[in-house]
Amino acid sequence: MFKFTVRRLLQMIPVIIGATFLIYWMVFSLPGDPTAGKCGDRPCPDAYVAQFEEEYNLNDPLLVQYGKYMAGVVQGDFGESYYGVPVSEELSERFVVTAKLGLMALGIEAVIGILAGVLAALKKGGFIDNVVLVSTLAVIALPLFVTASVLQLYLGIRWELFPVTVGSDTSFYALLLPAFVLASVSLAYLARLMRTNLSENLGSDYVRTARAKGLPQSRVVGVHTLRNSLIPVVTFLGYDLGALMGGTIVIEGIFNIPGVGNYIYRAINDRDGVVVVGAVTALILVYLFANLVVDLLYGLLDPRISHD
């Protein structure tokens, strides 16, 4: 297990360097003006452009630029927003809210997704199976921002069951509807994944053996099959965190939740490139570390992996 952990950690380093370099390179070296939109509709004055280039070392060779940028990131410096506020300052305030929203969504996704998948797989072709299949397809086909807006209109404005927007009150109740919408698409994928896995495993030899021993259904499914079917689900949850983060940009924008997603949403509208790059880089770093944790967890769930 120790060797596995160390190897996984070492593999992580080139990925982090590569991914951040890729972002940096695409944003600052591709055709396009990094100061575009900073001075309204007019092009920026030369003095401002010179100052901007100086501040972000745009006159250095690419690798030196990137090195200086990463040296900043390691020290928690993600640049400054259009208004002169350090991105890291905003991020540290907003991150708590996004983490809360994300964890709630992840919880909803895991519980409902797994439950729906299990119920569907237990009676393949039955009523619940068909309901799960049809409803998950419908959820996947609708873009997140449509689901969010429609639910906001009906549950928030018309029927007044939930607060319309969240604002400064980030209580559990206020975040419930946004978290549910955020989880919806991933939940649908998860339910389908769980259904396929479980129904495949239910046909395997060890299940037949367990049945032949006379074990009750609850033990065959609950202990033998469920645990094996959960392994791919854990991987999916880690990978899916990236989709959830993308979703927070939309959801926090629509429900006005003061998190990182909202910050990116506004920065896109203000065309504030530095904020977008800084905040997205921070999110991707979190995403990569979360996946590292998932991989290590995976080693615990499935002993075969850590012993090769």
């Binding site: 590569g18 944003v27 396009g32 993308g246 990116i264 490139g273 977008v276 997205v280 991707i284 995403y287």
Partner: peptide, 21 residues
Amino acid sequence: EIFFALPLILGAVVILTALPP
């Protein structure tokens, strides 16, 4: 693996804000 580390919407947001309109 490096490209895989960029989630679809997050990565798209970064690249598209950088490309000229």
